[in-house]
Design a protein around this nucleic acid. Structure first.
Length: 491
RNA sequence: GGGCCGUUAGCUCAACUGGCAGAGCAACUGACUCUUAAUCAGUAGGUUCGCGGUUCGAUUCCGCGACGGCUCACCA
């Protein structure tokens, strides 16, 4: 709305004409709004009168209720609201004129003494008003606020100004990450950073983004996982490493998929996947308690209890949840598995080996039931080209995935460290690629070379930070836990 | 990618069966020295997402397109 902008440009000129700097470089505050409330929120009107407290605060004007020669301004600073009372006879003339030229959205500073209004609200009696910055665009309406999700995601800055719960989500996200770091650092882990630009996109089964380096005239991929570099570091003797980083997958967008997302991966030498199940329970209990205050959370209307984790084999889970009766033994029979998939109208690739079909059956039948924290272990070897084989059953690998709230949150395994076996697995992935599986893993000769120098027995795990944040903030869409989710361009 | 739904003032939403495009908040002018959805009086604000069609007349009906939401498929 050009007219409104014109008016506000004129108002900024008025403010300049009063002798204020339109864009001052700084404001020295003594308190954040949060500190004022925390330190003095309990003081009574009498206490504040007996012992006057002077504070200097800054913030954005979110409400204005003028009364001629006086008026109230509601400001917010760091998500905390605070009220300022500007009175003509308590302010220098020039600053009262400034007060009268202010608009909703403007940034101001204020020095004054604390008092309680008749209705009991802690308020600053302004003795000095400073102008800090102008808002030329109007804020959304004050009752309903901004609800259009498209505008909320595209203009997250406005969303953050007017929707305080959005700020809370990202504060929690930051807490989650901080607590994870603390946990791993305390456990003797070493944080590293590995390349985002890969010549071979490996470590997961997914379609990568392609890019190109001009000077080297070389095709590159954005990483789809952190895995292979971190294991190279295990070979190099960094026995406990982790990386918290952005990864990129050129696939569909949904309530639980954003093209770029944040993954924690950690690798621990001399351990296997069972050690990581124990460690994951401990890590999540600590994070949940820290962020949430208790071990029970509510997600999408359901109670989720982190005090007990269930452990179920993948075949066991299918047997348990499949509406058609089936035994674990029958799940080794391709015809039987295929029959079940058909009966359930589940989609699957008829050319794929039986292990993939078991995986499809699991997805169709079990995943949505896994609301309480559940480890699903012993995956088919075909789905896990980087995992160590299970000694007691060579069709399976030592792997688990953790499901919470019907979402896969973590994925871990005993790392395959036999270079000969690894080469064989890559080769069978190449065959899958031949069959048309675009997500099959590529051959990585340098990774095999690294394993050939000798890698200790190692367990590794990935945890999806976005999904964990969704659970702990009761967010129904991954876009609500990513500040700037990917959107189509506006024009 | 498929299906369903949506797009009207800065924001939140109306507008019956096709008949002058409206309200609240925000904005502007004025009154008001303890309000908190302040109140009172007045003013202004529109390419109804875009293009085309049907019609005397389209926000409304039809077609195409853009963007978004939900959902299914794929993936974590």
């Amino acid at each position: 709305m050009e007219e409104l902008e014109t008016i506000r440009v004129q108002k900024l000129q008025q403010i300049r004409d009063l002798g204020f700097d339109a864009y001052p470089t700084h404001y020295r505050y003594t308190h954040t709004a949060g500190a004022v409330v925390e330190q003095y929120g309990a003081r009574t009107a009498e206490e504040l009168e007996a012992e006057p407290i002077t504070v200097r605060v800054a913030g954005r004007i979110m409400a204005s209720r003028p009364f001629g020669k006086a008026g109230f301004l509601g400001i917010t600073d760091g998500g905390q609201k605070l009220q300022i009372y500007a009175k003509k006879d308590k302010l220098p003339e020039r600053e009262f004129q400034l007060y009268q030229s202010l608009d909703l959205g403007d940034m101001i500073g204020c020095e004054g003494t604390l008092f309680r209004t008749r209705t009991g609200e802690l308020t600053i009696q302004a003795k000095e008003l400073s102008f800090l910055a102008k808002s030329f665009l109007p804020l959304p309406e004050k009752w309903h606020g901004l609800t259009d999700v498209e505008i909320r995601y595209r203009r997250r800055y406005v969303d953050l100004i007017v929707n305080p719960e959005v700020r809370d989500v990202f504060v929690k996200r930051s807490l989650i990450i901080r607590e994870i770091r603390r946990f791993l650092d305390d456990a003797g882990y070493f944080e590293v950073e590995t390349p985002v630009l890969h010549t071979i996109a490996g470590g997961a089964l997914a379609k990568p983004f392609r890019t190109h380096h001009n000077a080297l005239d070389m095709p590159l991929y954005l990483r789809i996982a952190l895995e292979l570099h971190l294991k190279r570091l295990i070979v190099g003797g960094l026995n406990r490493v982790y990386e918290l980083g952005r990864i990129f997958r050129n696939e569909g967008i949904s309530w639980k998929h954003n093209p770029e997302f944040t993954m924690l991966e950690f690798y621990q030498a001399y351990s296997n996947y069972e050690d990581l199940m124990d460690m994951t329970e401990e890590l999540l209990r600590r994070v949940v308690t820290k962020v949430n205050g208790s071990l029970t959370i509510t997600y999408d209307g359901q109670e989720i209890d982190f005090s007990k984790f269930t452990r179920l084999s993948m075949r066991g889970a299918i047997v348990k949840f499949c509406p058609e009766p089936v035994s674990e033994e029958e799940l080794r029979d391709r015809a039987k598995v295929e029959g079940l998939l058909k009966k359930l109208h589940a989609e699957y690739d008829p050319k794929a080996p039986v292990g993939n079909l078991v995986g499809s059956l699991f997805d169709a039948v079990a995943e949505k039931h896994l609301v309480q924290p559940t480890f699903i272990f012993d995956h088919p070897i075909e789905l896990s080209p980087l995992s160590k084989i299970k000694l007691s059953d060579p069709s399976l690998v030592e792997r688990f995935e953790l499901y919470i709230g019907g979402m896969e949150v973590a994925n871990a395994y005993s790392e395959l460290n036999d270079p000969v076996d690894q080469r064989g697995r890559f080769e069978s992935q190449l065959q899958a690629k031949e069959r048309g599986d675009e997500e099959a893993h590529a051959m990585d000769e340098d990774y095999i070379r690294a394993l050939s120098y000798g890698m200790p027995p190692t367990a590794g795990e990935g945890i999806g930070i976005d999904r964990l944040t969704m659970l702990l903030t009761d967010s129904k869409s991954i876009r609500d836990v990513i500040l700037f989710p990917l959107m189509r361009s506006e024009d």
